[in-house]
Write a protein that binds this DNA or RNA. Structure first.
Length: 203
DNA sequence: TGCCAGGCCCTCTTTAGGGCCTT
């Protein structure tokens, strides 16, 4: 990502794995990266209108009691839609967050303008030797300072943002590309692993 | 009570199956 590119790095906590079977968002966290640093943050719980499972309470630390006093999904998502504007978007395993973002926005008759790029697909190419490509695993593998709790939306979006910026630095160091654009990162995630070198050399 | 999805990617592949990732 060029230092001039502004992107929103986001993460949803949800009631389950798929909006197609009725799952809803329960928390959104996001940071705006501008000129290579975090310039704004968004974090809010949202009430999905029904109790969440014990598994999700344990997984996220978000309890039904916490959600009782949260604003409804639609109200939160309207503010979040304003926050993301028409910026491009980044998430870890972006297909997951993309489905929930589009589903929640559709319920309030809104839609996004920006494109998604996936930090996990980029990391699978840039850290092929890593033991795994979970967000927490990558943060540990590349020694990003981590003093919080994973599986909360703002913390995960902050860690994803740090991973994203670390990958920009890695490309700069390894391939001598000084200013990697968002579109180049997106292209990276669609490039076969064996062809990554060619992607940067052909510039 | 236990499970539910979907895209990517590898391989014992491509007329398929299964692990990885996200909650």
């Amino acid at each position: 990502m060029s230092k001039a590119d502004t992107v929103i790095v986001l993460d949803f906590e949800t009631t389950g794995l798929s909006p197609d079977i009725g799952d809803r968002a329960i928390e959104i966290g996001a940071v705006r990266i501008e000129n290579g640093r975090v310039t704004d943050r968004f974090q809010e719980l949202m009430n999905p209108g029904r109790p969440i499972s014990g598994f999700i309470e344990d997984y996220t630390g978000i309890t039904n009691r916490m959600l009782q006093s949260a604003r409804p999904c639609g109200e939160v998502m309207r503010r979040f839609s304003d926050f993301i504007g028409d910026y491009n978007l980044v998430a870890h395993n972006a297909s997951f967050d993309q489905r929930f973002l589009d589903s929640e926005l559709a319920m309030i008759s809104e839609e996004r303008c920006g494109q998604f790029a996936c930090s996990m697909l980029a990391a699978r190419r840039l850290y092929q030797e890593a033991p795994n490509h979970r967000l927490s695993g990558l943060v540990e593998y590349i020694n990003i300072p981590a003093d919080g709790v994973f599986h909360r939306a703002l913390y995960d979006s902050e860690m994803t943002a740090k991973l994203w910026m670390a990958m920009l630095d890695r490309i700069g160091d390894r391939y001598e590309v000084p200013d990697v654009s968002f579109s180049m990162m997106k292209k990276l995630t669609k490039t076969p692993k064996r062809s990554i070198g060619q992607l940067f050399e052909q510039r």
